[in-house]
Write a protein that binds this DNA or RNA. Structure first.
Lengths: 107, 107
DNA sequence: TTAATTGATAACCAGATAGTTATGGATTTC
DNA sequence: GAAATCCATAACTATCTGGTTATCAATTAA
């Protein structure tokens, strides 16, 4: 899923959205109202951001009466971890190869 | 540096830019021309993306005659790893706290 | 049943962004 | 020295994006 990756990166690129996600990771389940108080933007803006986070799989929602409770799903961050590890691995692999080459040249 | 984080996320949010970085991680140092062949966009577009990557600390450049060689600096990904780990940690911490609570209630 | 609250959606707008072509400076090649 | 190559920058444009206000459906409270 390279598309999943793209969605994830794009979703987390916005600071307001990242702050909402951080809030949910730290404080646990929160209503839209509670999140709006903290967010510094209007309630519709918060709702839109939560929609984006939800489509990225980063949050869950749970309806209870007229309120909606959101909670974080940090497991969805895994592809991001994978990607960064992959990049570092590629780089180190080439580094090791170079080291080997130099070692052989040294003999 | 929360600002560093933001720059990092924003920089990697673009797929063309991410592809350039991946290319550099995998293949090592490359000239702008070589990168342009692979990129699927014009040379000026590639140059601009490389500029953004450079300002984010994700790549280095080295001038040699009329060519510019770029190389990846995957160590710059660290803040990203840190952030994701932090988020997972927050979440697990709350999870553990909940578990403790349930355990105490069970007695 | 009427009024108030909660959150989602619609419609709109300003600014950011990623692409393009044109061009120019620096270097190498002929 | 003239021509060609390499890359960066400038100028412009279309699209995306994040914000706003207005509104509406659903639920709860009076």
């Amino acid at each position: 899923m390279p598309d999943t990756r793209d969605v994830l990166f794009k979703t987390l690129a916005d600071p307001t959205r990242r702050a909402l996600f951080e809030q949910l990771c730290q404080q646990g389940e929160q209503t839209v109202g509670a999140l709006t108080e903290q967010a510094g933007v209007s309630q519709p803006a918060v709702s839109k951001h939560l929609g984006v986070l939800k489509r990225a799989g980063l949050v869950f929602d749970r309806h209870e009466g007229r309120q909606t409770h959101y909670s974080a799903q940090p497991a969805a961050l895994t592809p991001l971890l994978d990607w960064t590890s992959e990049m570092k691995a590629f780089w180190e692999q080439r580094f090791d190869a170079l080291e080997d080459l130099l070692k052989r040249m040294d003999q």
